[in-house]
């Protein structure tokens, strides 16, 4: 009987070569064929544009100052791949195939965005990763993200909260206090609007302290849903991150 179990039980989520629990990092045929992009590198140019756009959307407006810390291969080869131009282009909300990307530094000057570049020590969370700190007036935003190949990105942290998002789905990032019932309120609101949650992630600074919940959604939420969510108790901020729409 034991032999039979051993023969027939499969562990589809375990990578047999590394033994590590495997998650499917790529979920879409257009992350394999695509994106449509200006060269020369999908990871160092197109992925970088998308990371920049996520950071800008988290801030919610045009950044005035951007401090960019590059790690690993990003730090070693950014110049040759135009990674600096691409990240800057993303902060300007350009798409990956925007033909102004090669002149993003000039475009940044036009809108008065000041860029600071720092070489990070070590690899960071991934060989192609970047930490971005943005300010605009009183507003601040911080993300840590990596370009994991073919223009696909992984965001590891939003404003200091550990999250895992890809930018491939309409995403809402909600900052709230860690209180009982907050999650239930948010999920029932989404449910009432007929929006399915594809992936959800919660992180908190500590018990009863600030927390963040991110939702990757199957359909984009409306502006009124965002406003309604903001009216729920204990909700501090609701940010929409959506790379599925062209800028």
């Amino acid at each position: 009987m034991l032999c039979r179990i051993l023969t027939f039980v499969q562990f589809p989520d375990v990578n047999i070569y590394t033994g590590a629990w495997k998650s499917l990092r790529f979920k879409n045929v257009f992350s394999i064929i695509g994106p449509s992009m200006v060269g020369p590198s999908s990871s160092h140019t197109a992925g970088a544009v998308r990371i920049g756009r996520v950071a800008r959307q988290l801030l919610g407006c045009q950044p005035e100052k951007a401090q960019m810390t590059l790690f690993g291969s990003f730090a070693e080869t950014y110049w040759g791949h135009g990674t600096d131009l691409a990240l800057t282009a993303g902060l300007l909300n350009f798409d990956t195939d925007d033909e102004r990307i090669p002149e993003a530094d000039i475009e940044a000057e036009k809108v008065g965005m000041v860029m600071e570049w720092i070489q990070g020590k070590g690899n960071g969370p991934h060989p192609n990763s970047v930490k971005i700190m943005l300010t605009a007036g009183e507003r601040k935003a911080e993300i840590v993200a990596a370009s994991i190949g073919g223009g696909t990105i992984a965001v590891y942290s939003l404003n200091g909260f550990d999250v895992q998002i890809t930018g491939e789905y309409p995403t809402i990032a909600v900052t709230h206090s860690d209180s009982q019932g907050v999650l239930a309120n948010m999920t029932s609101l989404l449910s009432c609007e007929g929006i399915n949650i594809g992936y959800m992630d919660v992180d908190r600074k500590g018990r009863s302290e600030a927390a963040m919940t991110v939702f990757e959604l199957d359909t984009a939420p409306t502006g009124s849903l965002i406003e309604e969510m903001l009216r729920l108790p204990h909700i501090l901020e609701v940010t929409m991150i959506d790379l599925t729409q062209r800028s």
Partner: peptide, 21 residues
């Protein structure tokens, strides 16, 4: 070569390998 000269291509699966397909 279009890719290297910052022209528009489709990453298949990446820009570095965009010529083969």
């Amino acid at each position: 070569e279009v890719n290297a000269s910052m022209g528009r291509i489709i990453a298949t699966p990446t820009a570095g390998s965009c010529g083969i397909i």
